[in-house]
């Protein structure tokens, strides 16, 4: 059975999704746990953008905009949770 790039991307995404669901009970410290959860989301988002949306072949500015969107939203989510954790 030959797996191509799309199949590998799907398997990686399923693995990351299952890891995301399994992770929270194993992470007693929210600050680190949240960072890990959101990093997993960033990895999944990047896989979808590059392999499923095929942004590898798209103009660099579209690739940059989608990557920036993923990073900004997830970073904002982490910063907001970190602020609450530190107060």
């Amino acid at each position: 059975m030959n797996l191509d790039r799309l199949d590998i991307a799907w398997l990686v995404l399923i693995g990351l999704a299952l890891a995301t669901i399994a992770l929270p009970p194993l992470m007693p410290r929210p600050l680190l746990g949240n960072a890990l959860l959101l990093a997993l989301a960033a990895l999944k988002g990047r896989r979808i953008a590059l392999d499923f949306m095929d942004l590898r072949a798209a103009p660099a500015h579209w690739r940059g905009l989608v990557s920036a969107w993923i990073l900004i939203v997830l970073l904002l989510a982490w910063l907001a949770s970190a602020v609450v954790g530190l107060i």
């Binding site: 995301t20 929270p24 949240n34 959860l37 959101l38 997993l40 989301a41 988002g45 993923i70």
Partner: peptide
Amino acid sequence: WIVMFPVLYLVR
């Protein structure tokens, strides 16, 4: 959804 799921359901 991939971005929304952890933000709504998991991040504490």
